[in-house]
Computed example of a mutant assay.
Amino acid sequence: MSVEKVTFNNSISREFSKTVKERVDHYFKEHDLSRHANLQMVIKTIVLLTLYFGSYALIISGQLPLLAMWFLTFLMGIGMAGVGFSVSHDALHGAYSSNKYINKALGYTFDLMGANGYIWKITHNIIHHTYTNIHEHDEDLEVAGFIRLSPHAEWKPIHRFQHVLAFFAYSLATIFWVFVKDYKHFLKDHIGPYNNKSHPVSEWIILFVTKAIYYTYMLVLPMLLLDITWVHLLIGFLTLHLTAGLILGIIFQLAHVVEETDHPMPDQENMIDEHWMIHEMVTTNNFARDNKALCWFVGGLNFQIEHHLFPRTCSVHYPDISHIVEKTANEFGIPYNHHDTFFDAVASHYRTLKKFGDPEFSYSEPKYEFKLG
């Protein structure tokens, strides 16, 4: 379905945008820091890639008992999510390195895990980051027909149960990605607000080559090299993807589909009547900012506000610049949505799913009084 492109009224409320950018720029200059990966990020990259590919190497060696191999597929799922959060995500945003070739090379870790980086950059980097939480524009709100993540989406009776069904849907996300989602997007005439979108031949080639590589090392080689049945292979493959899918699905939903975040709709002229950076503030949520282990694993994506304002800054820096962003938001009377713990955020997401699944729920867009003058 073709939809008209949404615009933002960036001619108003410029003060916050200007101030927060200047303060974050000053932070990096004052501390003589690069906005890109540091040694800590490089070490994390090595650890996560080793967790995924090292676990695979141990499995494919054929030297371990069946139960140990099964456990390693669980570790591969954790590793897959971690690489996606930290390595692939930063690289595909051009945030990992100032060198575009390093970003491109590390971005292919996404493809090697069965997804497609080119389509991700369209649906996530461009569409989701521009049209966050805008119904029929933000692709991240379109998880499944039986999941209603926007209060403006059509209500269906199945949505009464979505607070339970959603977590099963999240678990299946990467399986759908590997076998269906990328092909579906390549074949679409319209992606979000982009009409008649065509794709370069080179990207079609990369899609089929990288998918073939993934299917070969994940499905063909284990059957050829290991003393297992197709049932064992299926159990291991599902364990990996159900683990990765659940982790990835939950983390990304906690950033935008919680009680505090807004779901604005454009006016009759198809405009959001606020500055884009303020739109990102009111539609985005942070969580568990003091949880160092979680911050390490999810690549700073629990600092989703900072990521949306500064997507080309490596996630390793988000905890430090978050104090600057929060202080500036408070000065301008702009909401800085956050939950103290991971479980607080999950609970809020669960309650939001229940609300959006209730046919009697009536959504009203919150009104803000910004201090912008």
Rank of each mutant, 00 (worst) to 15 (best):
F110T: 03
F161H: 11
K100Y: 07
K100S: 13
H152S: 07
I235S: 11
K184N: 10
D182W: 08
Y118L: 02
S198L: 03
L221N: 09
K121P: 00
N195V: 15
A166T: 15
Y131W: 12
Y183S: 09
R148A: 06
P151K: 04
W204Q: 04
V209M: 10
L149I: 07
P193Q: 04
Y183P: 00
I235W: 10
I206G: 00
T229Y: 08
D90I: 08
W177C: 01
D90Y: 03
V201K: 14
D111Y: 11
N196K: 14
I126A: 12
L219P: 02
T132G: 08
K156M: 11
S150C: 01
R148G: 07
E139K: 04
K121R: 14
A144T: 08
A144C: 01
M218R: 07
K184D: 13
G107P: 05
G107M: 09
V201N: 07
I158N: 03
I205D: 05
Y214M: 00
K188N: 14
A91C: 02
L225F: 15
N133S: 10
T216L: 05
I147D: 01
R160F: 06
I102R: 13
P193D: 09
A144Y: 04
H159A: 08
Y215A: 07
L165Q: 02
Y101V: 05
H232C: 00
L92F: 01
E136V: 06
L207F: 15
H159S: 09
G192N: 11
L225D: 03
H199C: 08
G117K: 12
D227P: 05
N195A: 12
